[in-house]
Design a protein around this nucleic acid. Structure first.
Length: 816
RNA sequence: GCCCAGGUGGCGAAACUGGUAAACGCUGCGGACUUAAAAUCCGCUGGUAGCAAUACCUUGUGGGUUCGAGUCCCACCCUGGGCACCA
């Protein structure tokens, strides 16, 4: 083999072989155990960034490792191709989103191929393809007919100057990003999916997702936010209908001192017209964006209504406020306020001079001091009439029962999770397959007419979606009555496409069905890899869709992703790499300079996959150096001709030590890659082994046999990470079989045996010496050996040992 | 504001189940090779004191549990991610 490592020469040759031999085309085979490894598909934004390289390298390492373990691996790739950036690019450059997107896909596909990822390109898909999105439209219609889809009004960010709906991202400090106008909240009719019908199952199944990080499961559980509480009706003086509130703390009901309504509560809207001051306050509540982070960090403000609510138990009159922190979208849009036992209510009561009445006692059984803050813990009731003295659970039950008996309340399970609004007033998305007819209402497009194709010869210019202006798209006949009707011009949230693509990869070429038998073979995904930023929304929606597919009889599993790895961000100078910060490193330049293997190696070595990764040019250089050293190690060994086979029973001491190091490394690397996914420590272990091999200058037949065994293992252990150079080294070591299917090395337990171990000796927990002793020595003998160590003896002096702790094979601690 | 992570040398990190803190790599310094440079190879590299043996200090801050804490508990500080129309 060549004496010098030349990645630019070897990588194209190796890749050419993979392409020629279709090395990564996955074929269903019931006789083999399958492994479906999926990385989150990219949005085709232009070119690959380092975050992509990291994500896809992790997925590729796992895929190639699983293949060497004998699994039938599927690793597909595609494009999350609809979305806002394509429209922005169109506005900026005058290029149709379809054209821009497809050009980006071509660029990025080439980059992925240059990185040598083991994808089955035959299964590539793009969500902007009618062949893909027609099945999304098809499923939507099924769900519509099943009652899982409904239409309702909800709020959007409205730019009053540009006369268009804005994404949260397009609202900057409450103003439209282009016009600078103060954004208003506006209600418009939209389509919703009943994800809340699945809330309980989505929550319960989290317990079974033991291949998912706990942090993600916790975040999802909190997002779903199941809470048990009571709905309470408060009569309003002079009004026919009561106002209903929801509370998880009915035990504090006797401490309620006022009521607060959302600005969009029907009772408020009804009074707005006659009260200009109220109207002004409500307008203020509705100004600015709809994002929760904005709404919840505003100053808490209120407006007193000339209404009185009647306390359902005491009959007391309570003042009623409109408050900017009560949101119509959560619960009932009205709350009872108990300032003594809720901090937000306390803050508001303080600001508006409202009474604060404690009704829950502290652990000492006395009324809490609420002069500085609310007392929010559970406790027994005080000053609560017939309920005084009850604990939280009894009080909850007694008050709920009492309200129910009076017809003024009922127990209810409430979710923080809201139904999923899937309508977007945008052009570059999947058309919602509905036709609006004056006579027949919203009529689903007949299956035979699918797909509803998005016109692609369109260049948005800024103010709103061009679709409503396209007569050839909008003007259609009603499928039911045949009269002139209007096609729906909203498109789906792009999260809809990314909620089922994992399933479509199993049969992307099927033009007669959404999914087929192949889905049964491959699903669920065995390993999913993607950024933490998707921990809640995308992953929750995908879980929801898998349950929808299951209930449609299209795919059996309850959950889409058996195992999940959430990859950390790629940083430069401590900040996320981004164009706006100007701290990006172009992967392409790195690949051109060092080759794909070096970039892959650095990515996997610099940090464990779940942590953020600090980019370092010097670190890349170091990775390149390691590959050069490895190359030389193999080349020097190969130059001495074929090596004999190692005979473990005929090795001398040095050879046995070298071989033990090898098998310790094999054991560690297998565990690190296969179980822990700590690729960084796996690489560190291989580096250590290579350092030991470089120092191992034994050219006897036994020594050469051990070195051959070690290098064979090193190359195989590095194959998932640096597959190109590994393939050439494998040949250099005299192998002619396909490394892609070479067996993952297994350690020989016999090689690990030691007859001597080093123990740390501590006195009172401080390290005072080290001793080498026979591995099977008993505790008394260990202590005796330790006492002979001069430094240990000095610290021990003549003090009596009170306690002796022995950790086998590791440590002896003497307590004096 | 709410939910979830993270914080260890000059830097990226390691320490997996409470048991040797800093493996591996980078940087820096010293040396070898070279006419020279690059490349490569060898050595040193947490702090303080000491010729050394060694001692003391050190895992964001302050407390606690333990023979023993980076790891467990309590309180706090800082950084990052998400918050439903960015993907």
């Amino acid at each position: 083999m060549e004496s010098e490592y030349k990645p630019r020469e070897i990588e194209p040759v190796v890749q050419e072989r993979w392409t020629r031999e279709q090395s990564f085309a996955a074929v269903e085979d019931d006789s083999r155990e399958k492994f479906y490894c999926l990385s989150m598909f990219p949005y085709p934004s232009g070119k690959l960034h380092m975050g992509h390289v990291r994500n896809y390298t992790i997925g590729d390492v796992i895929s190639r490792y699983q293949r060497m373990c004998g699994r039938n691996v599927l690793q597909p790739m595609g494009w999350d191709a609809f979305g806002l950036p394509a429209e922005n690019a169109a506005i900026a450059n005058g290029v149709p989103p379809a054209e821009w997107t497809r050009a980006n896909i071509d660029t990025m596909r080439g980059q992925l191929q240059r990185l040598g990822f083991a994808y089955d390109w035959n299964r590539e898909l793009a969500t902007c393809d009618p062949d893909y999105y027609r099945w999304e439209q098809w499923l939507f219609i099924r769900l519509l007919k099943k009652g899982l889809v409904y239409r309702a009004k909800s709020v959007v960010n409205w730019d009053p100057v540009d006369q268009t709906v804005l994404a949260n991202e397009q609202v900057v400090e409450g103003r439209g990003w282009r016009s600078g106008a103060v954004v208003e909240q506006r209600e418009i009719p939209q389509w919703f999916l009943r994800i809340t019908d699945y809330a309980d199952e989505l929550l319960a199944d989290l317990d079974r997702l033991d291949g998912w990080p706990d942090a993600v499961r916790t975040m999802q559980a909190n997002w779903i936010g199941r809470s048990e509480g009571v709905e309470i009706d408060f009569a309003i003086r002079g009004q026919e209908a009561p106002v209903t509130v929801f509370t998880t703390r009915p035990d504090t009901l006797m401490g309620a001192t006022y009521m607060a309504l959302a600005a969009d509560h029907p009772l408020v809207i009804a009074r707005e017209a006659a009260d200009p001051e109220l109207a002004a306050f409500c307008r203020e509540c509705r100004s600015g964006g709809t994002a929760a982070a904005d709404l919840e960090t505003r100053d808490k403000r209120g407006f007193r209504l000339d209404l009185e609510a009647v306390h359902p138990l005491s009959g007391e009159a309570l003042p009623v406020y409109v408050a900017n922190f009560v949101l119509m979208g959560y619960g009932t849009g009205a709350i009872m306020s108990v300032p003594a036992h809720d901090q937000r209510d306390w803050d508001f009561a303080r600001a508006y001079g409202l009474p604060i009445k404690p009704v829950i006692a502290t652990a000492e059984g006395v009324a809490p001091d609420v002069s500085e803050e609310a007392f929010t813990e559970h406790g027994s009731l005080v000053d609560s009439g017939e309920f005084t003295g009850l604990g939280f659970d009894e009080a909850f039950a007694a008050i709920a029962d009492r309200l129910a008996a009076d017809g003024r309340g009922r127990r209810r399970v409430q979710y923080r999770l809201r139904d999923w609004g899937i309508s977007r007033q945008r052009y570059w998305g999947c058309p919602i397959p509905v036709i609006h007819c004056e006579a027949c209402g919203a009529v689903p497009v007949p299956e035979a007419d699918l797909p509803v194709r998005l016109p692609e010869d369109v260049t948005p210019e800024g103010a709103g979606s061009p679709l409503p202006g396209r007569a050839d798209f909008v003007e259609v006949a009603c499928p039911d009555c045949g009269q002139p009707a209007r096609r729906e011009t909203d498109t789906f949230d792009t999260f809809v496409e990314s909620s089922w693509y994992f399933a479509r990869y199993t049969g992307p070429d099927n033009d007669t069905a959404m999914l087929d038998q192949r889905a049964n073979y491959w699903l669920p995904v065995d390993q999913y890899i993607g950024g933490v930023e998707h921990a809640i929304l995308h992953l929750l929606y995908a879980r929801f869709f898998q349950k929808l597919l299951r209930d449609e009889g299209l795919s059996a599993p309850d959950e889409p992703f058996a195992r999940l790895l959430t990859q950390g961000m790629v940083l430069k100078d401590g900040a996320k790499m981004s164009k706006s910060k100007g701290n990006t490193v172009d992967p392409q330049a790195m690949i051109d300079h060092y080759g794909a293997d070096t970039v892959r190696l650095f990515m996997m070595f610099a940090a464990p996959p779940e942590q953020s990764l600090e980019w370092s040019d010097a670190g890349v250089e170091g990775a390149f150096r390691f590959l050069k050293r490895l190359w030389r190690l193999v080349a020097d060994h190969a130059a001495t001709g074929p090596a004999p086979l190692a005979d473990p029973d005929a090795l001398d001491g040095g050879q046995m030590t070298m071989r033990r190091k090898l098998h310790e490394t094999i054991a560690k690397v297998g565990d690190d890659i296969g179980r822990r996914y700590t690729f960084n420590t796996a690489i560190a272990a291989v580096m250590e082994l290579c350092n030991a091999l470089a120092r191992f200058d034994d050219d006897s037949p036994g020594g050469r046999a051990v070195r051959q065994e070690a290098l064979d293992a090193v190359v195989r252990m590095l194959t998932p990470i640096v597959p190109h150079v590994a393939e050439v080294l494998w040949q250099g070591l005299g192998h002619s079989d396909d490394l892609l299917d070479a067996e993952w090395p297994i350690h020989d337990p016999a090689a690990l045996a030691r007859d001597e171990v080093e123990l740390v000796v501590q006195i009172n927990g401080k390290v005072r010496g080290r001793i080498r002793v026979a591995a099977d020595l008993d505790d008394d003998a260990i202590e005796a050996a330790a006492r002979e160590e001069p430094n240990v003896a000095r610290h021990l002096a003549d003090q009596a040992v009170r306690k002796r702790i022995v950790v086998p094979g590791k440590l002896l601690n003497l307590v004096v």
